[in-house]
Amino acid sequence: MPQVSLTVNGKPHSVEVEGRTLLVELLREKLRLTGTHVGCDTSQCGACVVHVDGESVKSCTMLAVQAEGADVTTIEGLASADGTLHPMQEAFREYHALQCGFCTPGMVMSAIDLVMKHPEGLDEKQIREGLEGNLCRCTGYHNIVKAIAAAAEVMHGRRTELAQAAE
């Protein structure tokens, strides 16, 4: 069986997999990182999004062997070692951008990539278009859009602290 060596959330791993093992299966079943979810089998829902070498990918649409040598970040690896949340995680909480939580890890990982790709800033339309690959059935996206806009301000240094949601 093939062996794949990769770094996940800063830790090196070397794991034996089948050729057909998906990256998400490696993360969930071999490394027990179950924060990354599987919500569909047609590569559309985005619940499985992780970062591979800094870019968001659907881990259900990538073979584990294709991640050889890669640096993978999952939702479990976002917060600082001291437990401080990433601004995007914090914004999702502040803006009530999650309900059942199932799409949330993928949504957060996609949102971070979206913001990082737009240092110039994002308007509501760009955020909505940028979420093309992530489905949420609970929130109607309303608060997700607001959370991403607020997190972007912090991530690009335009604000030092997250703007509070309106009461």
């Binding site: 990182l33 939702i75 909480r93 957060v108």
Partner: peptide, 15 residues
């Protein structure tokens, strides 16, 4: 703000 969010946002939900 929701108590349950911390676990969902950090991948510690248990489905």
């Amino acid at each position: 703000r929701r108590k349950e969010d911390l676990r969902f946002l950090s991948g510690r939900g248990r489905y």
